[in-house]
Simulated assay, not measured.
Amino acid sequence: MTQMTRRSVLAALATSPLWLQTSWAQTGALKISHQFPGGTLAEGDFRDRLTRMFAAEVEKRTKGALKFSIYPGSSLMKTNAQFSAMRKGALDLSLVPLSYAGGEVPEVNIGLMPGLVTTYEQGYGWKNQEIGKALTQLLWEKGVVLVSWIWQAGGVASRVKPVVDPEDAKGMKIRGGSREMDLILKAAGAAVVSLPSNEIYAAMQTGAMDAALTSSTSLISFRLEEVSKALTTGRGTAYWFMFEPLMMSRSAYERLPKDQQAAIMAVGAELEAFAKTAAQADDTQVASVYQKSGAKVVDLSAASVKKWQAIARTTAWKDYGERNDNCAKLLALAEKTL
Rank of each mutant, 00 (worst) to 15 (best):
T2P: 10
Q3H: 13
R6F: 07
R6E: 01
L10W: 04
T15V: 03
S16T: 06
A25K: 10
Q26W: 09
I32K: 01
H34E: 14
T40P: 03
L41R: 11
F46W: 01
L50E: 02
A56N: 12
P72E: 05
L76A: 02
A81L: 04
S84C: 07
S84A: 10
M86S: 04
R87P: 02
K88C: 09
A90M: 09
L91G: 04
S94C: 06
P97M: 10
G103D: 08
V105F: 06
N109K: 05
N109Y: 05
V117T: 13
E121T: 11
G123L: 06
W126N: 08
A134C: 12
L135W: 11
G143Y: 01
V144N: 05
V145L: 11
Q152S: 12
A157N: 03
V160H: 04
K161Y: 05
P166C: 06
A169S: 04
G171N: 06
K173S: 11
I174P: 00
S178I: 00
R179K: 10
R179L: 06
R179H: 07
E180P: 12
D182A: 15
L183E: 13
G189Q: 13
V192Q: 03
S194F: 00
I200N: 08
Q205F: 03
S215D: 01
L219M: 05
I220G: 00
R223N: 05
L224T: 02
S228I: 01
F241P: 06
F241H: 12
F243H: 11
P245H: 12
L246K: 02
M247R: 01
M247L: 09
M248V: 06
S251N: 14
A252V: 15
R255Y: 00
P257N: 07
D259Q: 13
A269N: 03
E270I: 02
A273C: 05
F274N: 04
F274E: 03
K276G: 12
T277I: 12
A279R: 00
Q280N: 14
A281S: 09
T284A: 11
S288Q: 02
V289D: 15
Q291R: 15
V297H: 01
A303L: 14
R313C: 08
R313D: 13
T314P: 00
L331A: 02
A332W: 09
A334V: 02
